[in-house]
Design a protein around this nucleic acid. Structure first.
Length: 244
DNA sequence: GCGACAG
DNA sequence: ATCTTGTCGC
């Protein structure tokens, strides 16, 4: 009911500062065949974050799914999502790297990139933290837009922030409501939409994110249908980004 | 003042 | 995100 509005000013300033580190090139990273990438999602049970990562080789070779548990302490506040969800996502990627030797070339995140009021969604946060290309795919938008694209797979429409394009509304299936895609770091605007579309199979949500969602959900419920591997408890992330 | 608001 | 019944559809 009550949100910590008091802190918003400081957090907003921090996002503005961090957003200066974000790089959205005209021609940036675009996956090559065989490039390993990971899609990430989280399910919450109170402050228990059940994090999952779905690993693929570009474009469509599924390599495996992993899930783990970590406690979060930051509350969810709309548009400050990165401070809550960023650290657990980082914890999983680090674990995949150190224990599973999975070193992704880019990441797909359930949330926004620069299609955000201060151009700093969770995909930007993670991209900067890992210095990796990232894109954000969200089910809803934080930014107003004029009109939706046609509900026909492949249709897109720009999302504008102060006249400036910051992302795309993407129809991933016919007769289905679209998703919202934007680059987080090191990926161009147009390529973020191309990548998301390429990853969308027969569902609205791109398959890698869907798989991560599935695993995170089962991990939270304490069941496992055999499609993912349990990594147990993840190592907490130290707040180095606050120090300067 | 009121409503809207990624997950 | 999560709390929840029934219902429609592949």
């Amino acid at each position: 009911m009550e949100q910590p509005i008091v802190e918003s000013e400081a957090l907003a300033q921090e996002q503005k500062t961090l957003s200066n580190m974000v790089i959205i090139p005209d021609a940036g990273y675009f996956p090559k065949p065989g490039d390993v990438f990971v899609a990430l999602d989280i399910q919450y049970q109170g402050d228990d974050a059940h994090v999952a990562g779905d690993v693929w080789a570009w474009p469509k070779e599924h390599l495996g799914t992993y899930a783990g548990l970590i406690t979060v302490t930051v509350p969810y506040v709309p548009s400050y999502f990165c401070f809550r969800e960023g650290p657990p996502l980082l914890a999983l990627v680090r674990r995949l790297s150190k224990e599973c030797k999975i070193l992704p070339k880019f990441l797909v995140i359930d949330g926004h990139g620069i299609a955000h009021p201060r151009k700093f969604g969770v995909a930007c946060w993670l991209g900067i933290a890992l210095n990796l290309p990232t894109i954000g795919c969200a089910k809803d938008t934080l930014i107003h837009y004029d009109a939706l694209p046609e509900k026909q797979r492949g249709q897109t429409r720009e999302v504008l922030l102060n006249q400036e394009p910051v992302g795309y509304i993407v129809s991933t299936q016919d007769d289905t409501r679209p998703i919202y895609v934007s680059p987080g770091h090191l990926v161009s605007l147009a390529d973020s939409a191309k990548i998301a579309l390429e990853l969308a199979g027969n569902y609205r949500i791109p398959d890698p994110i869907r798989n991560a969602d599935h695993a995170a959900r089962e991990h939270a419920k304490g069941i496992n249908d055999g499609t993912w591997k349990d990594l147990g408890t993840l190592e907490p992330i130290l707040p180095w980004w606050k120090e300067k």
